[in-house]
Design a protein around this nucleic acid. Sequence first.
DNA 1: TTGTAGGCGTTATCAT
DNA 2: ATGATAACGCCTACAA
Lengths: 343, 343
Amino acid sequence: MDTVTIKDIARALNLSTSTVSRALRGSYEINPETKRLVMEYAERLNYRPNPIALSLKENRSRAIGVIVPQIANYYFSQAINGIEAIAYNRGYHVIIFQTHESYEREVANMQQAVSRRVDGLLISMSSETSDVTHLKELQKQGMPIVLFDRVSAEMESTTQIVADNFGGAFAATSHLIQTGRRRIAHLTIPPYLSITQERLAGYRAALEQYGIPYDENLVRYGTFGPDEAGAMVDDLMALSPRPDAFFTASDRLALGCLAALQQRNLAIPEEVSLIGFTNTNVAELLSPAMSTVVQPAQEIGQMAAERLIELIERKLKASPADVVRIPTKMVVRASSTRSPTLP
Amino acid sequence: MDTVTIKDIARALNLSTSTVSRALRGSYEINPETKRLVMEYAERLNYRPNPIALSLKENRSRAIGVIVPQIANYYFSQAINGIEAIAYNRGYHVIIFQTHESYEREVANMQQAVSRRVDGLLISMSSETSDVTHLKELQKQGMPIVLFDRVSAEMESTTQIVADNFGGAFAATSHLIQTGRRRIAHLTIPPYLSITQERLAGYRAALEQYGIPYDENLVRYGTFGPDEAGAMVDDLMALSPRPDAFFTASDRLALGCLAALQQRNLAIPEEVSLIGFTNTNVAELLSPAMSTVVQPAQEIGQMAAERLIELIERKLKASPADVVRIPTKMVVRASSTRSPTLP
DNA sequence: TTGTAGGCGTTATCAT
DNA sequence: ATGATAACGCCTACAA
């Protein structure tokens, strides 16, 4: 790749590099005629300033690092999508690191990012990470950091962007109640995760608001493994009175629950209502069959990037306990014909 | 972020920057004692060379640009995963650009990447792109380029990495035939795409090999829209004799076909066999229910990155018509119980 | 209005 | 074995 530099232009036009530099940046103290000449010539040669030289000079890379468990995942790829949209607009590029859910790799990635001289870091913690001293340490050294989705309560003075899990669960449960449901089962993910707890709290709050007693028999916890929903549904449908609605907490559970109900030839939503937390893509696939609460992955990414760039450019410290909750969106199934089909 | 430079070390140790530099790189012509001192001090201060300064000096960014239609997509996020794995190993970082299937944005992204001084470019063309002069032009100017997945026959002297669609379709169809099927329907995507044609050719070649006549009534073309498979299945099952197997060409069609067959209470694979091209993630979800031909997205990404880095570092031109086909993997459904369920 | 010089961090070349 | 200098591309304080 040939590359035109200011020097080339200066030589060709018999000017000094400083004059060219000033002309290019439209400095007021330059002869309009010279300016025109330089501009034209630069245009003709398709001159582009070398961002690397600029970085060196300005001591910043115009790059932000993004550390996520994995890219090949609906949720994170959408979040990254949101991050990129904002970052590119503001003139930053994005360097992605994957932890593959390993604490060790998270630490290594962090150091990599530092070596690469990123201007700031967007982090979604690995599931293995419980000790956050590496993050605190780095932040103390002046690195702007924003956490998103997988956050930590221990990072008191860090901006954190999460989905409004409580609100989403509250809305979903309320919707089921308002459409006449009273025995609402909740299939969810492991209880030790904060998102699980928040969603459960939203579910309980809605029940309480409508005076429906909380029944812990109706709540089932899964892992992230496959093929769990079938057994849970079996189990729950054996109760008496049996549930008249299911509220699921993940894509997998939603699909599994849907399949299990269909297999039993239960009409949705006539006999059993169904609503679940899902990613946008899956929500789209499921929308003819069931209602969904869509995780705002992209919006979380955008907000995180915005906040980070603010931190970088204004060089402000995050205000303590600055936790932003992005609302979820409920998509109520449009059709309500009997015997719904998959996509 | 405080940052330790060679200068800091030199000052502290009362040496010149050149000595420090040499010591750090382990030059033989340096006093072992000095070397030790420098190394230790650098270690203690956690010195890391500034990659930006190096880039400026070496006139390369150690970054490769990746231009894809979108990140938030199973296929491309996996491909990127493969790309990153290789790139990071070789000391490159990856800058991602999205075209959102727009030709205009593809061109703009290309220029962006050039401005960013990427050392090479990995491109999966937008669906809108038919004119490839922008790519040819850039390549002629010396930019190393490798195309993957969405490639173009017009780029004669460019390395291109694609899935072995023919082979995958051939294997899938052969498998159906070997398990006793004779009336094999093929639900596929728009006919003008090269991947569609390749898969159809593989399907036909397998039929031919086993002496089964090709029946164009058994082939149905969809768009990428939702809810198409149901009608296709209806239509096909009304034929007489009706199909005894389905071979689908996308995730969507596979899911739709599966749902439609289940709804008709047709046992898979006893009454009707089913196999489809899918992404890994979806294949995993579907595996209890049907067989799949898995698209090698990640491997394609890896191979593309390997080839690109080779081009960058050896500075070789691609040999003409260098098209690499990555094999697909057939996953035959393990269980064959009646009435299969979704995930 | 334009030019000169120095510096961002690093390494290669040429002294010493 | 070590140091001084220049260069990568750009910008800016200072000079003219």
